[in-house]
Design a protein around this nucleic acid. Structure first.
Lengths: 329, 329
DNA sequence: ATGAAAGCGCTAACAA
DNA sequence: TTGTTAGCGCTTTCAT
């Protein structure tokens, strides 16, 4: 790499001022005369000067990078979150350092360590759970840690949670209203806290209502897993309702139910999902589901970025029932 | 931010060595005795030392960040690319600085400038087209520029292109085999080169075959646009085939065709898409489509990262016809 | 193999 | 308002 970027000294020379003057023209709210500012800007322009954020960050002992770690970035639910988050960060003048965790089970500690090395101010964890040692390190170094849909057993981290209990309640109530007699609750085999919370709350309520519920869990959180669940569960003709804890699985479940198991939805089978991903509203599905607002979720994350150190918060993202066509009326 | 990270001096002191020794233990292939190395590692471990990549980068006049700019990160096709790319970068020991361009039409120049400021070695453009001035700046500063599915009119940039012409040819041939008499070609209103290339090549071939083709373009590249296209185009009962230049639009097209326009696919309407996004294989669609291999695409990008400066390449990503259920046999 | 010292490009404290 | 100076934390000659 023979060639390299123009530095502030070169700009200063060309403009006939000191390097501080250059620095100041590029610093919000520093005192420079309009005259000097103009000269600097002109020189910078001509030379193609770009502030070196590495050097800048070295001074402040922090970059304005925000580390984002997540897995399965192509799943609709995650992709949507990432899309909105990266956009929001950019609008706030922060940059997004993206680390892909390969899969949900993998250890995210090494990725977070990488983020430390870039002196990011904050870390957002979209999937996976940071080990306690990492949380401590964040605290010790003044790095804000924001975890989504994972309830850590400590009070020093910002946690953004979808309101799983309310969601499960809405789903249960809706299936009860549909006069279901025996319902399945479908989770993946990944055992994420969110899925477990949804499934357990749902099961509890249904049992209280005296409705038979059969649990099912296996495989990754994918469309194909939904397919498999339906193939296995719907062998039992008594099952007339299903709560799939993510839309992606619900969509697979629906497809196998209709196209392979000969079920008519919602006439002899009611299905309800969770998340309200874009595909849920596609005409072939019209999935009745529990919606989490991506806007609210993103806003909560961005707001958490501004919280003072140590002032951490558990925030519930509200959910609502979106009535479409997969539950009997 | 009162607290701050441990520095190499502190590690050096604790280990009873010089800072150079510390630097060397953390530098690949530097000469340190096992003895010193051990001491340094121990001290670093105890102190929770993290190399400061900002300072590191300041020295080398470059970070090992790779800038990635893209729009609509939640669209399946983009999300998939980003997922694989970020994973690949991480495996190569590079980090992904993600800049979200809000929408496909927006100017990506400011985002790329941001990437310059972080002294990234390379920039990958997933959507949008960098202006010539930016390309020049990349060249001048030794920054590798890799553009996907955009053919720039210059030979000094790496360009990765799906083989649109072949894809269009395969689609045309398939629709001809299905004995279609009048076919629609659906593009969005965004006018991206890829879409135009696909549509034009397709139209040319069909006309050569003496088959009626009607073009349609409007709106963003979304599912909803596909819906709209079908509603408008299928008012004409003579249309018995459609080539949608992206799967997402094809899926919308299919849904409106079946659920709103009363068409039976593939019996009285054949539909073919492009990209082979995950949803194309869902049971409700079973979309026949032209597949681009995401693996090959990603590999091509990663390989381009290694190209020597100035040695730029236009690489075609091969495509294949994936036969499913939406074209008459 | 190791340490001392210089310097990467910038900002902030201090003087003028 | 401006310039001078001293680091920020690291790597890298250059001696030893």
């Amino acid at each position: 790499m023979a060639k390299s970027f123009v530095t502030s000294v070169e700009v200063a020379q060309r403009a006939g001022v000191s390097r501080s003057a250059v620095s100041r023209t590029f610093t919000e709210g520093a005192s420079v005369s309009p005259e000097v500012r103009r000269k600097v800007l002109k020189a910078a322009q001509e030379l193609g000067y770009r502030v070196n954020r590495l050097a800048q960050g070295l001074n402040n002992a922090s970059s304005n990078l925000v580390g984002v770690v997540g897995a399965n970035l192509s799943l609709p639910f995650i992709a949507k979150q990432l899309d909105m988050l990266s956009l929001g960060l950019l609008r706030r003048g922060q940059q997004c350092l993206l680390l892909n965790a390969a899969d949900a089970r993998s250890d995210i500690a090494p990725l977070i360590e990488l983020i430390f090395e870039f002196r990011a101010r904050a870390i957002v964890v979209l999937s996976g759970e940071p080990p306690a040692s990492i949380v401590d390190e964040c605290l010790a170094n003044g790095v804000k840690l924001i975890v989504i849909n994972r309830l850590l057993e400590r009070s020093d981290t910002d946690v953004i949670l979808s309101d799983d209990i309310l969601g499960a309640t809405l789903a249960a109530r809706r299936l009860t209203d549909a006069r279901c007699r025996k319902v399945a609750v479908v989770t993946s085999g990944s055992g994420t806290p969110t899925q477990i919370r949804r499934a357990e709350a749902f099961g509890r309520i249904m049992k209280d209502d005296g409705i038979d519920v059969v649990g099912w869990h296996d495989g990754p959180t994918t469309y194909e897993t939904g397919l498999k669940a339906a193939r296995e569960l719907l062998a039992d003709p008594a099952i007339d309702g299903a709560f799939c804890v993510t839309d992606l699985m619900a969509l697979g479940f629906l497809d196998a139910a209709r196209h392979e198991m000969g079920r008519s939805v919602p006439d002899d089978l009611s299905v309800i999902g969770f998340d309200d991903i874009p595909q849920a509203s596609w005409k072939s599905y019209e999935l009745t589901t529990i919606a989490q607002s991506f806007e609210v979720l993103t806003e909560a994350v961005l707001a958490a970025l501004d919280h003072a150190d140590g002032q951490s918060v558990i925030q519930n993202v509200p959910v609502t029932l979106v009535e479409r066509q997969t539950v009997r009326r």
